[in-house]
């Protein structure tokens, strides 16, 4: 019997009340992260990845947001606990790194002050101790001359340096889980590689579980242990990164991999657009854009997840008992051979 996962998310549902009706951004999503493991949530923009991760520690603004389901972290349900208890966990046991380092720091305070703040709100430390720890981390995340940069304001740092500082801020409480939401998206390519390498090293050093959100499958290949493919607020497929990359089962995963030239795809997009989150299609969310959709795909909600390989599960009717998944094309291994067959969706 293995120990329970570090983070266990079940039936996570996040809705937003808008003037145009209730918008369901995340719809009954399950996933888990083990200690020291990296799990990547992938999917195109608007698929609910960010909202899902921000719902874990209830960073989502409530109202208009509403988060339901259970999020067990070290056995405690984060969604059921009072705010002040959850606040103890935020930034201490669970830390976040966000997408846009340019906007994620307050322009009125020095970088060091903001890093030290994360420590000060959780521990009773002296100014000197907080400064020493923050400087130490700035140094650790690769900022040269850290003790001098402590007193710099965010606008005096480059984008890459800012993201390094944000990572230092996240690590200051020695978290058990790091949630990184597209931390490299706003950075240029050379810096991206450095930040990824840094995160990889830090994960080993700090022994953290990492939940990594990205739409960049090239990044996933580098860092992930397991991957969760999301589309329109639902999980389409999940599994070990090698299994999913070598044997993508869901048509959406296959299309997604086709989009990445580095993985052997043709770099083309997926025709059609995401469904309206206020009025999602019945049946499989991807059916309107799927070349292999049939009547069974359009009713009875998102199909149940079916094991296709140990640890790899897919939500697609074609894998049900008695069905032949080869209609989806032979296991493409990311070759992107049949992308021409994709028809445009329902619009």
């Amino acid at each position: 019997m293995t120990s329970p996962p570090l983070l266990e998310v079940e039936g996570l549902t996040t809705t937003f009340d808008t003037d145009g009706g209730t918008l369901t951004a995340v719809d009954g999503v399950d996933f888990s992260v083990d200690e020291g493991e990296t799990v990547c949530i992938v999917g195109e923009s608007g698929s609910g990845k960010t909202v899902a991760t921000e719902s874990i520690t209830r960073l989502v603004r409530e109202p208009p947001g509403r988060v339901a389901g259970t999020v067990r972290f070290k056995g405690r349900d984060l969604l059921a606990m009072p705010d002040d208890e959850l606040r103890e966990i935020r930034g201490d046991e669970i830390a976040h790194v966000f997408q846009n380092p340019q906007e994620s720091m307050n322009h009125c305070y020095t970088v060091g002050w903001q890093i030290a703040e994360a420590l000060r709100v959780h521990r009773d430390v002296s100014d000197d101790e907080a400064r020493a720890r923050a400087t130490d981390l700035l140094d650790r995340v690769g900022i040269a001359n850290a003790s001098a940069r402590f007193d710099d304001y965010p606008h005096e740092l480059s984008g890459g340096q800012k993201q390094r500082a944000m990572i230092a801020m996240a690590l200051v409480g020695d978290p058990d889980l790091l949630i990184a939401d597209e931390p490299t998206t706003a950075l240029d390519v050379t810096v991206q590689a450095q930040i990824l390498k840094l995160l990889d090293e830090l994960q080993a050093e700090f022994g953290m579980g990492v939940l990594f959100v990205t739409h960049d499958l090239g990044v996933v290949a580098q860092i992930a242990d397991r991957i969760v493919v999301m589309y329109a607020g639902k999980v389409m497929e999940r599994g070990g990164v090698l299994d999913v990359f070598d044997h993508p089962a869901h048509p959406y995963t296959r299309r997604l991999l086709d989009c990445v030239p580095e993985l052997g795809g043709d770099g083309g997009g997926i025709p059609g657009t995401l469904p309206d989150p206020r009025d999602p299609p019945d049946g499989c969310r991807f059916a309107p854009r799927c070349a292999h959709a049939e009547p069974a795909c359009r009713t009875d909600g998102q199909p149940e997840e079916i094991d296709v390989r140990p640890g790899q599960r897919v939500s697609c009717v074609h894998y049900r008992d008695g069905r032949d998944p080869s209609v989806l094309g032979e296991d493409p291994a990311g070759a992107g051979s049949d992308s021409n067959e994709v028809t445009s969706g329902d619009d």
Binding site: A95, F98, M105, N106, C108, E117
Partner: peptide, 29 residues
Amino acid sequence: NADFMKTAKAKGVSPLRAYAYHVMRPTLV
């Protein structure tokens, strides 16, 4: 509504402290 308020919340900063430090200060400019 700025991103840095989300950062502050993620750090575990209380709403009162977040308003006092992260909203009041830039507002004073």
